[in-house]
Every structure is written in structure tokens, then in C-alpha cells.
């Protein structure tokens, strides 16, 4: 195509060197790695608010579950729809009980709920009941590796649990790095600081003492985006209950049977606009039938609010997080459904 290479193109001129220089290069890289690993770990322990807010919230709820304030009759577990939607104070009023909300996040999946129950039973007296608040589109999910790495139980805990994911060596190694090398697992934080050093991002999810975390402000843009996302899910994906979710529910049922407590599986609140859409409604109804079939053999798991509580857009932050007075309304409905079930 062209003339042969001429002498003007760049080439590689290798300079003279010696072993001392090479060793210096390699030692520099090792020293840099150590500095970054320990420096960032130190920074995060000094200023936890610089850390990933999701991980922080996840660990906070786990620590609450392990602590003495979690010795209650009613344990509230599940994803963020429960964390923001079920207020233990209202549950206490309606059911004349003591309760704590240790809901975490949807990406932790139901296996995390099973682990929480198992860890709880190892530390505290048996609760009277466990509520599990779960969003319909999370049944397919498995626990995400970063969250699994942040469960504050001794390394290898998953092997000692009743239900355990299959981890190959590479995944276990990734888990190790996620857990013990935060500069790798939380590097987005450092990126955020480096990109805006004059205004480093700081996040904090606020909880009250009972583990409840209220969302104060509506955000119509978030709501609209979430509606679009949920509609896409309903029209493009088949409803599936993942293998891990099934195993987790079976383990939870076994634990309930062995220790003698009831498990209430609660549908998360849902945006009215979704349920008014025929395609979405059909998808949702089909999901309920699948969930019914899955828990039919489980004698200690009971469904409440199978017909989900619906809210208009202005009372929600997204399609399953309620706001303001809707929180009390939803929590009261959950409590009353439990009460009705227990009276029967």
C-alpha cells in the first residue's frame, strides 16, 4: 500500500539499565500498592461517610441485627421498599409488640434474608414473627458479590449457613478483594473525590433507632424513570423466581419450623399507575401465581397483602418506595394483615 517504513516513525530505544534500577521500579510499584491499600482503608475508617452509601447502609442494618436493640418480637426484613416503607413504631402500635427494621437492599436477595434470620437466631431469643418485604421484580436476583463481601460475619460464613451460593475459586478471590481491599471495591468513591476534590461527594443514609429510614422528598424524575423501567421489565422479561430465592425461602421455612415462629411474606407497595396498565397488571398477577405455587409447600410462610397496596405518584419516591403519610398507611396495612391472620 505504501512505501517501506522510513526512519521518521517512532521506534523503541531501550536504555541501559541494571538490576538495581529494575528492583527500584518493582519496589516502587509494591510500595504504591501498599500505600493505596492501607491509606484508603485508613481514610474510610476515619471518614465512613466517604464510603459507598449502599454498603454503609447494608452493614449498618446488619450490625443493628447483631446488636442488643434487635431483641424484639417482630423482625422486619427485606429490601429497600421495607427499609423505607415499614415503620416499626407503627407496627408496635398495631400489633402491641416490639419490632426492629433491619431491611437492607434488593441486590442482597432473599439469601441475605435467610442469613440474617440465621445470624439473629444464633444471638437472640426466637422472635414471634418475621416480616419479609419484597418487591416483585427481585425474585430473579441473586446476591451481588460486593454486598456478600460486606456481610459482617467471619470470613467463610457462607459455608456455615443453611443456604450457600456456589462459589468457584475466582469468585472467592474476588470476594476476598472486595472485603479486604476497599480501594478496589470502592474505587468509585476515590474517583468521585479525584474528579471534584473541591467538593468530595459524601452520602449518608439516615436511620432512626428502630432501623427505619424515611425518604422525605418526592422526585418526579426518579418516579418517571422507574415507571419506564418497570414497564420495560414487564413487557420484555419473563417472571422468574431464581434458584437462590427458592433455596432461601425453603431455608427460611425450615428455620421457622425448627424454632417456632411465623414468616409473613409481604408485597411491597406499588405505584398505582403501573397497576392501571393492562400489560403490567397481567405480568404482576402472573408473578403472584408463581409465588403462590412456590410457597405452597412451605408450612410456616404466609402471604399478606397479596393484592398489593397501591399509591399515587405524589405519595411515592419511586414505584415501590412510599413517602410521608403513605408510610404510616402502608405500615398500618401490613400490621393489620398480620393481626387478621393471627386472629384467624
Amino acid at each position: 500500500m505504501t512505501a517501506p517504513l522510513n526512519g521518521q516513525l517512532p521506534t523503541e530505544l531501550i536504555r541501559k539499565t541494571n538490576w538495581r534500577h529494575l528492583a527500584g521500579s518493582i519496589l516502587t510499584l509494591v510500595a504504591t500498592a501498599l500505600l493505596l491499600v492501607f491509606g484508603f482503608a485508613g481514610l474510610l475508617s476515619a471518614e465512613p461517610e466517604l464510603g459507598n452509601p449502599t454498603y454503609n447502609a447494608f452493614v449498618t442494618q446488619w450490625q443493628r441485627l447483631k446488636g442488643p436493640s434487635a431483641r424484639v418480637e417482630t423482625l422486619i426484613l427485606g429490601d429497600s421498599s421495607g427499609r423505607h416503607g415499614v415503620d416499626p413504631k407503627v407496627i408496635d402500635e398495631v400489633l402491641h409488640t416490639t419490632s426492629v427494621n433491619v431491611c437492607t437492599i434488593g441486590s442482597a436477595g432473599l439469601i441475605n434474608v435467610a442469613w440474617q434470620i440465621e445470624a439473629y437466631l444464633a444471638r437472640h431469643p426466637v422472635p414471634r414473627r418475621v416480616l419479609i418485604v419484597h418487591v416483585y421484580d427481585l425474585w430473579r436476583r441473586e446476591i451481588e458479590l460486593p454486598l456478600m463481601s460486606h456481610v459482617p460475619l467471619p470470613w467463610g460464613y457462607w459455608n456455615r449457613m443453611r443456604v450457600s451460593p456456589d462459589l468457584d475459586d475466582e469468585t472467592t478471590w474476588d470476594l476476598f478483594l472486595e472485603r479486604y481491599v476497599p480501594v478496589l471495591s470502592q474505587n468509585k468513591i476515590v474517583v468521585g473525590i479525584a474528579m471534584r476534590p473541591w467538593d468530595p461527594p459524601r452520602w449518608k443514609i439516615k436511620f432512626d433507632q428502630s432501623g427505619f429510614s424515611a425518604i422525605r422528598n418526592a422526585d418526579p424524575e426518579i418516579f418517571r424513570k422507574d415507571v419506564r423501567g418497570q414497564m420495560w421489565t414487564a413487557t420484555h422479561l419473563e417472571f422468574v423466581i431464581g434458584h437462590q430465592s427458592r433455596e432461601a425461602m425453603t431455608a427460611i421455612d425450615e428455620l421457622a419450623g425448627e424454632h417456632g415462629f411465623d414468616v409473613f411474606l409481604v408485597n411491597a407497595p406499588i405505584a398505582e399507575v403501573l397497576m392501571q396498565d393492562a400489560d403490567f397488571k397481567a405480568y404482576y398477577d402472573n408473578a403472584q401465581i408463581e409465588i403462590d405455587a412456590m410457597i405452597a409447600p412451605l408450612s410456616n410462610v404466609h402471604r399478606i397483602l397479596r393484592d398489593p397496596m397501591r399509591f399515587p405518584a405524589e405519595r411515592m419516591q419511586n414505584t415501590d418506595h412510599v413517602l410521608g403519610e403513605a408510610i404510616a398507611d402502608y405500615t398500618r396495612a401490613v400490621g393489620l394483615a398480620v393481626a387478621v391472620f393471627e386472629q384467624d
Binding site: G24, S25, T28, L29, A31, T32, A33, L36, V183, L184, N187, V190, V191, A194
Partner: peptide, 15 residues
């Protein structure tokens, strides 16, 4: 040179 190497390596780890 070592400072440059350290910066490149830190860049890989962080970014």
C-alpha cells in the same frame, strides 16, 4: 521515573 511509574500504577488501581 519511579514517581511516574507509581502514578501510573496508582491510576490503574484507583481509576
Amino acid at each position: 521515573r519511579l514517581l511516574l511509574y507509581a502514578a501510573i500504577f496508582a491510576g490503574i488501581v484507583i481509576f
